[in-house]
Computed example of a mutant assay.
Amino acid sequence: MRLPAWLAQHLAALRAVAVFTIVLGLAYPLFMVAVAQIPGLSGNADGSLVSKDGKTVGSSIIGQSFTDADGNPLKQYFQSRPSAAGDGYDPTATSASNLGPESVVDTLPDPSVQDDEGKQSLLTQVCQRSKAIGELEGVDGSRPYCTAGGVGAVLAVFHQNGSTGPVTRAVSLNEACPATPFIQSYQGVTVECAKPGEDYAMGVVTPIRGTAPDKPAIPADAVTASGSGLDPHISVAYARLQVNRVAGARNMSAADVQKLVDEHTTGRALGFMGEPAVNVLELNLALDRAA
């Protein structure tokens, strides 16, 4: 008995769905799981977990924080770079901040709105982190276009003819009143603090470089998050910056700590891609073993 054409087509489609479900939905995934368990591959496939005294303490391919319950850096450990993944280093929320070089103006908190914390620009985040790291490491944390207070040094400059002509008004956009602006005057006009909720859109956004050195003491990776937010590595420069602080906290010599840094420094990928880097978790575990 010949089946109707429409029924034959539906049965053929069902058979195709069944075959592809078995091949691509079951056989292929199970085959890849089996391949991943081959010696030499199983560690990465299982998450590159790192154990200490029989307890899993992290992953060598996912960064993590080394802070106390209040979020303060533990001085005896090397610190990781910032993370924008979830609440920090969350592999289920891997992401970047999506803030670019033009993110220089903060959204100031509105005091009339309860629990309004505003929103920091990328510039202010970088300035704040650099200031905090400078204080932690005992070095100059200043950066170009940052105020001494750790926010972006940005003015809204109002001109007589819109965007041209003499300056008639200048407002420090990232310093909310009653703060004292980071500079007293700009082109002969007294600089004002910013009033939350006031519209300064007619002003020309003008970053002020300041007197910070061209090459800051704090490396760039110390104040910016990676694209994934999960980077377990820091630059060699950032690791070296932390050597004296870690050595002092552990009563070790700086030379011994630096030796461990050198031992846990990896070269460029394939010999030419990227820069040498230091795996923070593995270095901190080595410090614990040395102690």
Rank of each mutant, 00 (worst) to 15 (best):
L3E: 00
A5W: 14
Q9K: 15
H10M: 14
L11D: 07
L14N: 03
A16H: 09
A16L: 15
A16D: 04
V17D: 01
A18Y: 05
T21M: 13
I22Y: 14
L24E: 02
Q37M: 12
I38M: 13
A45K: 14
G47I: 13
G47D: 11
K52V: 02
D53T: 00
D53V: 01
V57C: 05
G58F: 05
S59M: 06
I61F: 15
G63H: 03
S65K: 14
F66M: 08
F66R: 08
D68I: 06
Q76S: 12
F78A: 11
Q79T: 03
S80F: 06
P82D: 04
S83N: 08
A84Y: 01
A85P: 00
P91K: 13
S95V: 01
L108P: 04
P109M: 14
P111Q: 09
D115N: 14
D115C: 07
D116C: 10
G118E: 02
K119E: 12
Q120R: 15
L122H: 10
T124D: 00
A132S: 07
A132L: 11
L136W: 10
E137H: 08
G138M: 07
V139T: 11
T147Q: 08
V151M: 09
A153W: 09
A153P: 05
F158T: 02
S163A: 13
G165N: 06
P166A: 14
R169L: 09
A170P: 02
A170Y: 07
V171N: 05
V171L: 00
S172I: 03
L173G: 01
E175G: 03
A176N: 03
P178T: 01
P181Y: 12
S185I: 11
S185F: 10
Y186L: 06
Q187A: 14
T190G: 00
E192Q: 14
P196R: 13
D199M: 03
D199F: 05
D199A: 02
Y200N: 05
A201T: 15
V205K: 14
I208A: 08
I208N: 07
T211V: 09
P213E: 04
P216H: 12
A217H: 10
I218Y: 01
I218G: 01
I218P: 03
D221M: 07
A225T: 01
S228Y: 11
S228P: 04
D231H: 06
P232W: 06
S235P: 00
A239Q: 02
R240V: 02
R240E: 15
V243K: 09
A249R: 05
A254P: 00
A255P: 01
A255H: 04
Q258Y: 05
L260P: 03
D262F: 13
D262C: 08
E263K: 15
H264L: 03
H264A: 06
T266H: 06
G267C: 08
G267N: 10
R268L: 11
A269W: 06
F272T: 05
P276H: 10
P276F: 14
V280H: 08
L281W: 08
E282M: 14
L285H: 03
L285T: 00
R289S: 12
